[in-house]
């Protein structure tokens, strides 16, 4: 799914418009615990999170996450936006909640990139 399509679903605002959003997203991951993200996510995913601190950006960088959506209108600091821009990661702010947006994207055909604890993907 193209990130621009995901942004439409999220009614999201791109916080660092200098980073191109025309990119293919292979799957999604919704998590507030960064170790869960690092444990499960595969490259080229969109990360949906309620957490908003610099470690979210670092985690995304380490795990090759392609875009981050901050839920419930959370606003990253200018430092975080700058860090994400340098790492070529679009930051998106959405008013929606976790279940709401995860459900919408799942229904629209976005695959889950969260592996189960036994390592399998559904």
């Amino acid at each position: 799914m193209n990130l621009n399509e995901i942004i439409e679903h999220a009614k999201g605002k791109v916080l660092n418009p200098s980073v191109p959003t025309d990119r293919e997203i292979l799957g999604g991951c919704g998590a507030d615990l960064m170790s869960d993200v690092l444990a499960s996510v595969k490259p080229n995913a969109v990360l949906l999170t309620g957490l908003c601190n610099p470690q979210v950006i670092r985690t995304a960088q380490m795990a090759d996450v392609s875009a981050i959506i901050f839920l419930r209108g959370k606003q990253p600091t200018p430092d975080m936006i700058e860090m994400a821009t340098q790492e070529d990661i679009p930051l998106i702010s959405s008013e929606k909640g976790m279940l709401d947006l995860c459900g919408k994207l799942y229904r629209a055909g976005l695959r889950s990139f969260e592996s189960n604890m036994n390592g399998s993907h559904e």
Partner: peptide, 22 residues
Amino acid sequence: MSNTLQESQGRRGRTITDQDAH
């Protein structure tokens, strides 16, 4: 779906990439 996509890209136009800014 692809229609909305094209529209949205049209509205946004071409964004300046990091490389451009550099």
